[in-house]
Amino acid sequence: MQANPDVHSMDAVLDKLYGEVGSPEREAFRQEAYSYCIGQLIQEARKQEKITQSELAKRVGTNKSYISKIMNGTVEPGVNLFLRIVNALGLKFDIVKPIVQM
């Protein structure tokens, strides 16, 4: 595979496609990408647990359609629902303070 000489960094590609960091277009893209990644993480954990979307929905008190939208990145669950999903999938969620290196 040959490198494209016109592409110098991923940031340059994103700048060209979605505007510079901080622009409304770039922020919208970042949010969409984040939602998609969260959905994929939930979907993979659900598959590892061998439960259906319907079963997960039942465990967390929502419906299959909403679970599907979360997994597709169409909607981002609120914190309460996200933590119920994490718990229902037997996962752990930690909030930690990052180590700052000097």
Rank of each mutant, 00 (worst) to 15 (best):
D94V: 03
N63S: 01
Y66M: 10
E49Q: 15
V86H: 03
N80H: 12
L89S: 03
P77M: 11
E55I: 04
I95D: 07
K92Y: 00
E55Q: 12
Q40L: 09
R30L: 11
Q53D: 06
I95M: 14
E25T: 10
P77V: 13
K50W: 02
G73H: 06
E27L: 12
V86T: 10
F93M: 05
G61N: 10
N80S: 15
R59S: 02
G39I: 08
K47Y: 11
Q43V: 01
N72W: 02
F29M: 11
E76D: 14
L91F: 00
Y34R: 08
V75S: 15
K58Y: 01
S65C: 08
E25D: 15
A28L: 09
P24K: 05
R26A: 06
T62Y: 04
Q40V: 02
K50D: 14
N63F: 01
F93Y: 08
E49W: 03
E27R: 09
K47Q: 15
E27Q: 12
K92W: 00
G78F: 11
L81K: 15
K47N: 14
I70T: 06
S35Y: 05
L81M: 15
G73D: 06
I51N: 14
Y66R: 11
Q48G: 14
L41R: 12
F93Q: 02
E76W: 08
S68M: 03
S68G: 12
K64M: 08
L56V: 07
V96T: 09
A57I: 03
E44I: 11
G73C: 10
T74C: 06
E32N: 10
K50C: 10
L91A: 08
K64P: 00
A45S: 14
S54A: 15
L83M: 12
S35T: 06
I38W: 04
K58M: 06
S54K: 11
Q31F: 07
I95H: 08
G73A: 10
I85Q: 02
K64Y: 01
I95E: 10
L91Q: 09
V86F: 01
R46I: 07
A88F: 00
N80M: 12
K58V: 00
E32Y: 01
K92D: 06
L41S: 09
Q31H: 10
C37F: 01
M71N: 03
M71A: 04
K97T: 13
N72I: 07
M71H: 01
R30K: 07
I95F: 10
V75N: 15
N72E: 10
K69T: 07
S68Q: 06
E49G: 08
N80I: 11
L89H: 04
Q48V: 08
K97M: 11
A33F: 02
L83A: 05
E44N: 07
I85E: 04
N72K: 12
S35V: 01
R46W: 04
N87G: 00
I42W: 01
N87V: 00
K50F: 09
K69N: 13
G61L: 02
G73K: 09
V79N: 13
I85L: 05
N72C: 11
T62E: 07
N72R: 13
A28C: 05
N63L: 00
Q40Y: 01
I85T: 10
V79C: 12
I42S: 05
V96L: 08
Y34L: 12
V86R: 05
V60A: 03
V86E: 07
Y66E: 09
K64N: 07
E76P: 12
I38T: 10
